[in-house]
Simulated assay, not measured.
Amino acid sequence: MKPTLTLGIIGGNGWLGSALGRCVLASGLIAPNQLVVTASRKHNRYQDWPGVTCVESSDALLEVAEIIVLSVRPEQFAQLTLSLENRLVISLMAKVPMVALASATRSDRIVRAMPNAAAAVGRSYTPWCATPRLSADDRDFVQRLFSACGVSDEVENESQIDYLTALTGSGPAFPALLADALIHHAITQGISPAVAQRGVLHTLSGASQLMLEENATPMEMVTRFLDYGGTTTEGLNAMLQHGFREAVQQGIEAAYGAVKT
């Protein structure tokens, strides 16, 4: 008798696919016996979920899954043979447009999404967009799927997904660069590495939470400190005068350019 498996993640043992899978299970959106993933029998990330089915090939996954998540590198996707007519196909791949997904899968129910590494701790931001053939039920499922690992928004078109791949798809990378610069400077001033790291990371985490809870924009927070006239004001003015905004914008432009090539 065919098992009751509805969601299949090709690449479900990778860092992103497994983060999504584990978050969805933890949220209760699906039961373990409703998830099938491609994963080696010797190395899988679902040992805490014994009801999950791990298969070694995408062909075996396609035999039982009704909704397919593609969480592989674009070059790996090009090597797959997929026949997914009438199935909901959700791609987590950068740089693979909907027209290519539709051609390769023969499905007209396509979603493109871009979670980030914070999905591993249930704190991703995930933008997604879809082809017109998705039903209201499809859209509701996709929103709940990505909300299980953080916050998600349906955006208007693929060009916005491409841009957000560069911006929010970076996950902790850009904030980590700021954190590293702050930590390094603290260490040069004699602060121990452990104290510097703990202080900087908790400051950044607390700042994000404060802005979210106060519903304040980052610029409102910056303006508040610029107007205060204290030591932080001096630091902000120096950073701005030395091209902080320009450096960040150039970094985003470079990342966005890489997405489009």
Rank of each mutant, 00 (worst) to 15 (best):
K2C: 07
I9V: 07
I10W: 04
G14Y: 02
L16M: 15
S18P: 07
L20F: 08
L20S: 05
C23S: 15
A31R: 14
P32T: 11
R41F: 11
H43A: 15
Y46H: 08
Q47E: 13
D48W: 04
V52E: 05
E56I: 10
D59T: 14
A60L: 14
E63S: 14
E63Q: 15
V64M: 10
E66M: 06
E66W: 05
I67R: 08
I68E: 08
I68L: 13
I68K: 05
V69M: 09
L70D: 03
P74A: 12
E75M: 12
E75G: 08
Q76L: 11
Q76P: 01
F77N: 03
L82M: 13
L82K: 03
L84H: 08
L88Q: 04
M93A: 00
V96F: 05
M98Q: 13
L101K: 02
T105E: 10
T105R: 05
S107T: 05
A113E: 04
A113S: 11
M114Q: 08
M114D: 02
P115A: 03
A117I: 09
A119V: 04
G122H: 02
R123Y: 05
S124N: 09
T126Q: 00
A130Y: 01
V142K: 01
S152I: 00
E154T: 01
N157I: 02
Q160F: 00
Q160H: 06
I161F: 05
L167C: 03
P172D: 06
F174D: 07
P175N: 07
L178M: 15
L182W: 03
A186I: 02
A194T: 14
V195W: 09
H202T: 13
L204K: 04
G206D: 05
Q209K: 14
L210K: 04
M211D: 06
L212G: 09
T217L: 09
V222S: 05
L226F: 03
D227G: 09
G229E: 01
G229Y: 03
G230L: 03
T231N: 12
T233W: 00
N237M: 14
L240D: 10
V248A: 12
V248N: 09
A255R: 04
A255G: 10
Y256E: 11
T261E: 14
